[in-house]
Amino acid sequence: MNEQATQAGNAAPMVEMRGVNKWYGDFHVLRDIDLEVRRGERIVICGPSGSGKSTLIRCINHLEEHQAGEIVVGGVPLTQDVKRIEQVRRSVGMVFQHFNLFPHLTVLENCCLAQTWVQKKPRREAERLAMQYLERVKIAEQARKYPGQLSGGQQQRVAIARSLCLHPEVMLFDEPTSALDPEMIKEVLDVMVELAEEGMTMLCVTHEMGFAKTVADRVIFMDQGQIIEENAPEPFFNNPQSERTQLFLSQILGH
C-alpha cells in the first residue's frame, strides 16, 4: 500500500473540497471551505469546539450533507446518489470519538461484518484479514470478547482495525482520543502514528498537539466554520500568523 500511495502521490488529489458550505437550519456551520488532500498526506485539523471541524470531515463520507460546493473523493464526486455515496464510503475509513463499535457483536464479528456483507468476502477470508489487523493493533487475544468487556483504549483500537479491514484509501479520525482516560490515549496514538508512517492518507480532528507535531504534514486551524490558518506544523506552532490561532494555541498549550 505504501508504494501505491507514493506512486499515485502526484496524481489527482485524494480529497478535494471546493467552496463547500453547510448550514444547520440558519446556522452557517461551514463557510467557503477549500481543501485539497494529496494521497499519503497527513492532516491535523484543530480549533475550538463548535468551529465545524467534525462537520468538515463528516462531509467527506457524507455522514453530513453539504448544501453548496463540491466534494470529490478519490475521483468520485459526492452527490445525492446513494450508490455513489456508498462507493465513496467504502474507500473512506472513519474512527469516531465514541468508538461506535457494535455492542451486540464480538470484536471479530465487528471486523468481519462489512467485509462479508459489503465486500461479499467468504467468511474465512474475512476472519483471517480481521485477525491480521487485530494483531497489528495488538488486540488479537480479545477477538472473541464483546466490546463492552474492553477498555476505552482497546475499543478504539478495535474501531481502527475494523476500518482498516476494508482497505480504505483515506482514514478520517474524529477526535479519536477525546473520550479516553489519559493513560489510554497513548496506546491509540501509537497505532495512529504507525499508520501514518505506513503512508496512509489521514485527516485527524484532534487536540493532541504532540501528535500533530510528530506526524502531520499540514495543520489546519478552524474557527467559526472557516479555515483560518493552514501550514506545516513547524511554522504553525512556532510562528502562527493569525491572531485567533495565536490565542487558541496559547490556550491549549499554556497549561
Partner: peptide, 25 residues
C-alpha cells in the same frame, strides 16, 4: 445515532444497517 453512522461509514446500505446493526439491538 453513532451505531448507524458507524455502519454507514463502513459502506453498508440502508437495509444492511437496519437489518444487521440497528434492528437486532
Amino acid at each position: 445515532r453513532g451505531q448507524e453512522e458507524a455502519a454507514a461509514a463502513l459502506g453498508m446500505s440502508y437495509w444492511l444497517r437496519m437489518g444487521l446493526i440497528v434492528l437486532p439491538q
